[in-house]
Design a protein around this nucleic acid. Structure first.
Lengths: 152, 152
DNA sequence: ACGTTATAGTTTCATATGTAACCATTTGCA
DNA sequence: TGCAAATGGTTACATATGAAACTATAACGT
């Protein structure tokens, strides 16, 4: 059995990062873990990616958005939105029309089937969020919200 | 000028998610923003990806690790680590030997050049972390640490 | 010792993603 | 008007990523 790893050069003129205490790294792990758990819920049931779900979530709230507006709301770039939309339209989750006064713009909305899926997935997503928050007491939840408000 | 988007079906039997108040979404945006800012720092200067940098950060702390151990420490899967290592070895940032008693294992360490790069990048990463934390007061910083400890 | 199973790491293939180039339409303004 | 610049959106290409198959070596049980 090989010796346990020990921290490198004792002559520590190097000051290496400790990832496990490094905020950006910790945030990244946490965020990926949570998002992946939610994605697992719907990717198994429906054939849809996280980006596609985000687009649907926005269209559920705002009727008749253009692709660019969706991109703004989701913080995705327009190429990603375009691709998500073409899959969603093909799968008949989203309806895409052309804007009356500007033929460049699309006018997007959920289809019947899109709404049906939304109405199943949204509660699952909320349940996962609750699972996470349940690990914190009321005071911690309060601070978390406040901290995210400040940082974003 | 087209009418401002209004929230969809007034007959809200649908209860759509509000992404901007949805914890997983907010965490994801925050995490990506911060990680990307750091990555921009070193990707422009050195030809290295985020995963490669994480591998280097671990090797800076732990001398002689195997690829599997690196994978554990970085929360990356072994394929990602393998790929990162082959690029790092090719770029002469990392030295890869074979374990004496187990020819399957690699024995990894930073090269001279790897250390040189590490010693430039680590302070930049720490500076970015400080920039983020500077947006919070001492109490908020304290709570953030505590919350991450609990959730991770 | 010998075959089975487990482990370390790499390769392959299919899919996802980002950047830049591109088309169509609209806007701004000489 | 009419033409350059801006905008909405898609396509093409190059690179990244994940899952599964694969190779080599080691560990285990008999």
């Amino acid at each position: 059995m090989p010796a346990k790893r020990r921290p490198a050069p004792p002559t520590a003129e190097h000051a290496p990062l400790q990832l496990e205490h490094f905020l950006p790294y910790r945030l990244s792990i946490l965020s990926n873990t949570i998002s992946q758990a939610i994605a697992d819920d719907y990717q198994s049931r429906y054939d849809i990616s996280m980006t596609e779900w985000r687009v649907m979530a926005v269209l559920a709230r705002f009727e008749g958005m253009s692709a660019r507006e969706v991109a703004e709301r989701t913080a995705m770039d327009k190429v990603a939105v375009s691709r998500a939309l073409s899959r969603l339209v093909a799968a008949d989750r989203v309806d895409r029309a052309t804007h009356d006064n500007d033929k460049r713009r699309s006018v997007l909305s959920l289809t019947e089937s899109g709404w049906a899926m939304h109405d199943e997935v949204a509660p699952m997503a909320r349940a996962r969020e609750r699972d996470v928050l349940a690990k914190l007491d009321a005071e911690e939840q309060h601070w978390l919200t406040r901290i995210l408000d400040k940082l974003l």
